[in-house]
Structures are given as structure tokens and as C-alpha cells.
Design a protein around this nucleic acid. Sequence first.
DNA 1: TATTGTTATACTCTATAACTATA
DNA 2: TATAGTTATAGAGTATAACAATA
Lengths: 151, 151
Amino acid sequence: MILPDETLRALIGYCLHRAQASTNLRFKTALAAHGLRRTTFSCLSLIIENPGLKQGQLGEALAIERPNLVKIVEDLTCAGLIRRETSKTDSRAYALYPTDEGTARFTEAMVTLRMVDTVVTEGLNAAEVAALRSALEKVEKNASRISEAAD
Amino acid sequence: MILPDETLRALIGYCLHRAQASTNLRFKTALAAHGLRRTTFSCLSLIIENPGLKQGQLGEALAIERPNLVKIVEDLTCAGLIRRETSKTDSRAYALYPTDEGTARFTEAMVTLRMVDTVVTEGLNAAEVAALRSALEKVEKNASRISEAAD
DNA sequence: TATTGTTATACTCTATAACTATA
DNA sequence: TATAGTTATAGAGTATAACAATA
């Protein structure tokens, strides 16, 4: 028995929530197989792409508050996936670098995630997936722009 | 200074997460102004659309585990937005109905949310919004279908 | 024996205030 | 005084196991 939720479906915000909740479960399972969570995975990705970056920059890029980064960075460090060096120009800050194991782990996880991505976009052609990505980025910018205005 | 996150942006799952996180903040603020949270709001909507439904059906329709519904239903009841009646055909179950105040509150909140929805979809024409909604529902179904297969 | 709702519990993510050590 | 990272804490959402009452 299926209950109607037409009213909620009219809201893009609700559709976004449902789609994200659904895909998030898949990504979570896929990442867990590699000993990663969504947050540790995305931080690891950014550190690989921007070796030497500081925690503050990491948090800004991923929209993660600084206090919440502490455990994420600690988990990645303890797992041997990144290493921290005190910055030579500013001894308050840490520069974050991937280890070889971190890079390898990320590459493996990425293969799995690309497969998940392929499956969840089944039934959409390349142009439709591109349009979806573009629309999502516009929505994200619109919502964060409002956020700035409200500050 | 903007750090590249091209690798992550290639994943629809990541774009979905970022867009949802961004819009969710807006919806959260909008709902708080009406004394509601995302969960209480969507439950209230479903109860209005399907008066007399049971908690179990509510949870199934909204993908909320039963234990997690207890507080949501309690909050809505204490706020005077819904009422619970023991089902006449099954005294284990409660039938949930909206109160007049609940219906009124929902209508008010919906006006605000539609405005938020309009703003976050700025720059997308009607066809693009429709395509976005359609793509999101396909992705949601694909991901939950995999979920069923994994059970 | 199965189901409805409940309790207890735990984990993740998120958010804010206050602290420390450097700049 | 401002900034980088930290600690402490709290709230919201989500997940599972075990229980009582009822079917």
C-alpha cells in the first residue's frame, strides 16, 4: 500500500532530501567497505587534490565547521591515510598531506563509488546526468547565497 | 581562495549531498519560524493528506524507522497539531488525525517553503525544474531498488 | 507466532561557546 | 587583537535489539 505524498513532492527541497537519503545509504555502505565515512572520504579527496592544505581551508571547502574537523583529521591520521606537519610559516597551523596508503585507499574507494554512481543514475542518459549535475550546483549556489544574505 | 574539489564533483552522490545540505539549512530556518522541524513537517503533511493513518504506514511512506517516529508523533501531539485515537479495528495501533490548528500551521509553513523553493531554483526555467524533479525521483528509486536487492 | 508501538542505546553529523598557543 | 586548532557540549537524525500489549 502506497500513501500519497504529492504535497511534499511539489517541493524540490523534499525531493532533494529523499534522493540524498536514498543514495547516501548506498555510498555509506560502499565507503564502509574501505574503512571510510562520507566525511573522511571527502576530506581525504581534498587533501590529495591539494596537498599541504590547512584544516581551516579544508573546512571552508567542504562546509565543515572547524571543531568537527578535529576528529575527522584525527581518524585519518590514526588510520595512516594522512600525515600532519606543523606549517613552517605559521606554527599554529598544520599542513595536511596524504600518505601513499591514503592515496591508494582513496583510489580504491573511488572505483567503488563510481560504480554506485553509475547504478543510481541508471535510466538517465549522459545529457540528463550533466543537466542534473548542473541543476544541483545552481541550487547549491542559490541556497548558500541566501545563507550569506541572512548573515 | 577556492580549493578545487573536481574529483568529488564528478560524483552525483557528492553533488546531491552538497545541494541538499545547502537547501536543508534554508528549509530548517524556514520551518523553525513555524515551530516545526523537517521530520515533524513531513509527518504532519502526510497525516493531513491521509487522515487516520497508522504510525507504521507513516514511517514506511517517509522512510523513517518506527522507533524514531515515537518522539516525532509525541512532539506533534503535544504541540496540538495532531491527535491520536486507538484504532477501532486494531487496538495495538493508533490512528493519526490532524487538528484544525495542525492544518492551519501546515498551510502557513507551506507558503514559506514554496517561497524558499522558488529562490533555490532561481536561474532554472520550468522545464529544467521539472527535469530536476524527475531526475531526483529516478535516482531515489534506483538507490532504494539497490537497497532492496542488498537485503 | 507475528505485529504495533515503545524503550533503551549508540553512532554520525552538525552547531556554538570558550579555551590555548601562536601571530 | 586576531587567527588556528582544540575542548566541551548539545541537538537532530538515524540505526538496531529487546520488550509489552494485542492480533
